[in-house]
Design a binder for these strands. Sequence first.
RNA 1: GGGGCGGUAGCUCAGUCGGUCAGAGCAGAGGACUCAUAAUCCUUGGGUCGUGGGUUCGAGCCCCACCCGCCCUACCA
Length: 608
Amino acid sequence: MTRVLSAVAWPYANGPRHIGHVAGFGVPSDVFSRYMRMAGHDVLMVSGSDEHGTPILIAADEAGLTPQELADRNHRVIAEDLASLGLAYDLYTRTTTRNHHAVVQEMFRGVHDNGYFVERTTTGAISPSTGRTLPDRYIEGTCPICKTPGARGDQCDTCGNQLDPADLIDPRSRINGEVPEFVETQHFFLDLPALAEALGAWLDEREATGLWRPNVIRFSQNILEDIRPRAMTRDIDWGIAVPLDGWRENPTKKLYVWFDAVIGYLSASIEWARRTGDPDAWRTWWNDPEALSYYFMGKDNITFHSQIWPAELLAYDGRGSRGGEPGEYGVLNLPTEVVSSEFLTMEGRKLSSSKKVVIYVRDLLSRYQPDAFRYFVAAAGPEAQDSDFTWSEFVRRTNDELVAGWGNLVNRTASMIHRSFGEIPAAGELTDADRAILQTAEQAFDVVGGLIARHRQKAAIGEAMRAVGEVNKYVSDHEPWKLKAPEQRERLGTVLHVVAQCVADLNLVLAPFLPFSANAVDAALGGTGEVAPMPRIVEVEDLDGGAGYPIITGDYTATPRWERRAVVVGTPVGKPAPVFAKLDAAVVEEELERLGLEVADGSAASPV
RNA sequence: GGGGCGGUAGCUCAGUCGGUCAGAGCAGAGGACUCAUAAUCCUUGGGUCGUGGGUUCGAGCCCCACCCGCCCUACCA
């Protein structure tokens, strides 16, 4: 047994999350974590809502709410959505807890005490009325190069040139239209050059394992070449206070949201431990060098997980070129693997909440089964390259593969057993063909499990579905519906027993991907319907006296093992109800209309 | 501008060390079967592997240039 930390990217709480987000970090991390639990490992899966930073402030202003009110609202929505998808977190929390603030401040002090912050004075834009930092991209004006109005402070979308916001002609705040003020301001910069050697050594060691996806390791090594100190504080009044005298009291100096967000993996582990009643329980995942940690995210987050976060850990531990000592958390493990997904597009376009090219998780789940979406993501998601979600493909995958392939196998199996025996029949003498199909089903554990462990979920579910096809073929080849004569009854029982065993095997193999239907399939074959434990939302008190909030948690100790469980002869099997809902072909048009797209020629969509 | 990734059948995508690597699924065509949500099973057509060079006995695979798409570019998260 190995301890495995599943560190899942923290959704940003400026609004509800769309299917691209959960396809990138949600489904893959849950499939992996469920599998690792079944394989007998001690998994701790943590995440939470990322609630600081400028975009939250802006969204709150637009909604007429305080940032905390906005974060409260969105945290709840996001948590409910993730739980509805069956994502089995041990703890899904948030960054506005007092526990998180305290852990972040301890990390800051550790890094500071070890000398890995440098103070620098920079020129930055602020909003005169609020004193808040105005990030480059929240300033707009006329491009000094191509003279196009509406250029952003960081880049002109028209001519593509990178800009300095101070050079914009007639600069304005995109937030409230006022003229930004450029002021000198003091900030703490993480001294990444002093950590570069240690980061490089860690990446080289990781590369040597051959496990990281090539694009992730190469990208990570590449960004090391031009490494500079990076500001870890901001002029903003929403966030975590800088825990130093003279800074702590300053209401407009806070820690950079990314400095605190990645620490969430640690703070959530600590919060989980405190809630279990064993406050040091997190240490076996973080201080034991044998423990493994996997970080799941979209590709836009790689730099924060393969550079900023390990740099924070190395600095806290005192493992950079300036030396130092670990703080009270001890020497913390660096990531074993940064598992990054690519991007999901929709109908050929980039998903964008602001441009309304979007399907929110909640909307999807209000109309379709979570497992249908999970299946699509596992089978056709952006695992190693961008992939496209289209409604026609979603309907096809659901109807032709899930319903017609797997659902039908379950249904015909249960139906025949119910009609002919009413219970799981005993097997008589086995033929070579019987043994062969049983072997195929049992081997699926090794084949599929090995692929999931290597983060090759598309190949993994493909192998599982290939095995489903072979069992369907076995049923067709052996035509149990023709074995009607009394002297054929033992053979009929044998065939149905074999099929029931194969279905039970493949159900466990598919359980990490399709947890809801795994329970339904188990029940259809007379089981208890509890092969895939589900997460739940719980309202909790803040551990340190702050406001209460909802979390996702769950008890996953009943997870079955990743191996064949012999079906029990005599288990009653009732008349089955279909496990998967077949989708009407009309949903393609309905959904495209909802998106403001129209069907062009049956499959492709074009703008209205 | 710089860095990275990708372009393979009508569609969506696999192709690990250069050597059965021209592949799968779907869509199309034909057949078998009727237990099952008209589901299942069998057979079958179809590709200049983005373009142009190069290395090699041999190149989707390695090298160079170019075209197209996407990501990052450090004060969005």
